[in-house]
Nucleic acid binder design. Sequence first.
DNA 1: GGACTGAATCGATGAGTGTCAACATTGACG
DNA 2: CGTCAATGTTGACACTCATCGATTCAGTCC
Lengths: 134, 134
Amino acid sequence: MSNQSEVVATAPCCAPLVREPLTQDWAGDLARMFKALGDPVRLRLLSMVASHDGGEACVCEVTPAFDLSQPTISHHLRVLREAGLLECERRGTWVFYRVVPAALAQLAAVLGPAELTVPAVPAELDIADLGVRA
Amino acid sequence: MSNQSEVVATAPCCAPLVREPLTQDWAGDLARMFKALGDPVRLRLLSMVASHDGGEACVCEVTPAFDLSQPTISHHLRVLREAGLLECERRGTWVFYRVVPAALAQLAAVLGPAELTVPAVPAELDIADLGVRA
DNA sequence: GGACTGAATCGATGAGTGTCAACATTGACG
DNA sequence: CGTCAATGTTGACACTCATCGATTCAGTCC
């Protein structure tokens, strides 16, 4: 609704990935994180945790959303945790997961025309546009 | 007080992934792209192409950087191409690859400026460090 | 303490993936 | 034409991964 206009097209120098070839070590680290995201179930898990109230969710809250067994969900959560994208904390009987913002920020920064340099305006940049333009 | 912090407070919506649970379809599409990035070789390939002069590079220019056979490199390039992250064009004997900026932008946007998700202490979150380090 | 609930781990299995050697294809150049 | 160099494709193999059932571990409540 509001004028999102041409806010996006900033950042002349941009993502490290575009600026110079990745080192082998760095590519390995990043690949481990991207690989963790390379599964629809894990992506949805991450999103559900991130968008849940308080930025955290317990396993029993996210499990019913999938047609998968509890061990499988637990496995995927572990993959995300070992990739550094999620962290967990036991509270009584339940285990709560929440995202690690810095990890997501790192990935976004590597990929993208970093919105980091954008001042204030980008309330909503329409990803829908970017997506459907195949 | 007129800097980011206030904007952050008034802009609760940020990355789609954090704002609401991903739909199954969307997660599938995104996962296919992330999976393509989930390999160190492919990440380096993408980076080498993106950072090459003119934003494009031919296979013979990137292949020597790896201890892999040429068919293997070709395979990885194809995976990146089918994921929509690269596009290629034949020019004489050579085939030049270049990145699809919109695809990278989409992924970066989905992951989102996690900066916005941390309302309290945005100043101390040094994303630049995360990016360029090492 | 004993029974119950939520979550992680283990072992197995079928599907998927990275890699290579061998072959096919495309275009350049005598 | 015919040959050569640059890429893509195919088939095969080993290895990884997603998934499940069964089991185990951690806490709570009676």
